[in-house]
Simulated assay, not measured.
Amino acid sequence: MMMAAVRKSTNWFAIGITAAVVVVVLIVGGVVWFANSQATSPGTLPQSSSVNTDTGAIAVGTGEKTVDTYVDFMCPVCNSFEQAYGPTLQQLVDDGTITLNIHPIAILDRLSQGTQYSTRSANAAYCVAVDDPANVSAFVKEMYAQQPKENTSGLDDATLASIATTAGASDAVASCISDGTYTKFVTAMTQKTPVQPGQSGVATPTIAVNGTVLSNQNDLTGDPQKDIVARLDG
């Protein structure tokens, strides 16, 4: 007796469920990828001849040798560094010895009572650089002259805009500052700040001479001729 062949039926319901699950997984994966990419995206880039959008550096001067400063405008030690080293660095810029790369970063937002002052002030620096990089040095100098104390709300956006225009920027910077145009860029560049030798986290100011990161504790004595000029020559 010949046995009848068993006819296999296609389970379209199971296939449909499997396909739907695959689609859902792909959608969820896409949403997660998009959310992650948005979280790490640098956002609007500050398009200026003086800004390196890969490193966040705002270049002042055109010298062959380089000094990089990573600063938070809420940081009192950054202000002390500016007072001690600023004149020497400016002289090195003026005589064509160095390019001073200023990296405005934000690590002290927690000390501005929720106003995100470090991020807002760094954003303002990029607004000035995009408007006219020739005004960056004057802006930075005045920002330190009016530096708020830690654990205060910091300067408001209108004051930041006033400092910018006093430094020579156009009135257009006001909307750039109040809109927080480069806020995400500031966050992304802050994450790229190098760690000083002997430390486990980012500190400000962080200084690099010709690409070599210095230790505030061991390499900076307060004598710019010894700490900066000698290293440039060496």
Score class of each variant (00 low, 15 high):
Ile98Asp: 05
Lys192Glu: 06
Ile17Thr: 11
Asp233Thr: 15
Pro224Ile: 04
Asp156Arg: 04
Gln116Val: 00
Arg120Leu: 03
Ala145Ile: 06
Gln83Tyr: 02
Phe139Gln: 09
Asn79Asp: 14
Ala145Pro: 00
Gly61Asn: 07
Gly180Tyr: 03
Val28His: 01
Thr66Cys: 06
Ser121His: 01
Val186Ala: 04
Cys75Ile: 09
Ile163Leu: 13
His103Glu: 04
Lys184Tyr: 00
Pro224Thr: 04
Gln83Asn: 11
Thr53Ser: 08
Gln146Phe: 10
Phe13Ala: 14
Trp12Ser: 09
Val173Glu: 07
Val173Tyr: 07
Leu92Pro: 04
Ala129Ser: 11
Ala158Met: 01
Ser50Leu: 03
Ser178Asn: 05
Leu100Glu: 09
Lys8Cys: 04
Gly29Ala: 14
Leu232Thr: 10
Ile27Arg: 05
Ser80Lys: 12
Asp156Leu: 04
Leu89Trp: 01
Ser9Asp: 11
Asn36Val: 10
Val173Pro: 08
Leu155Tyr: 07
Ala134Trp: 00
Val24Asp: 03
Asp223Ile: 03
Gly168Lys: 03
Tyr144Pro: 04
Val186Ile: 07
Thr187Ser: 13
Leu26Phe: 13
Phe185Leu: 06
Ala14Gln: 11
Ala161Lys: 03
Gly180Pro: 05
Ala20Phe: 13
Ala106Thr: 03
Val128Tyr: 09
Pro42His: 01
Ile15His: 01
Ile107Tyr: 02
Asp131Lys: 02
Gly154Asp: 06
Lys149His: 07
Pro133Cys: 09
Lys184Leu: 06
Val71Pro: 00
Ser9Met: 08
Gln83Cys: 00
Gln83Arg: 14
Ser41Trp: 03
Thr40His: 10
Ser9Gly: 14
Trp12Val: 11
Gly198His: 08
Ile15Phe: 11
Ile17Lys: 02
Phe185Gly: 06
Asn52Val: 02
Thr10Lys: 12
Tyr117Trp: 02
Thr66Tyr: 02
Cys78Gly: 08
Gly168Glu: 07
Thr97Gln: 13
Phe34Glu: 10
Met189Lys: 13
Thr165His: 00
Gly30Ser: 10
Gln147Phe: 07
Ala4Met: 12
Ala172Ser: 15
Asn36Glu: 14
Gly63Lys: 03
Val130Ser: 09
Ala208Leu: 12
Pro205Met: 09
Val229Thr: 15
Thr212Ile: 12
Lys141Gly: 11
Leu26Cys: 08
Asn210Ile: 02
Ala14Met: 12
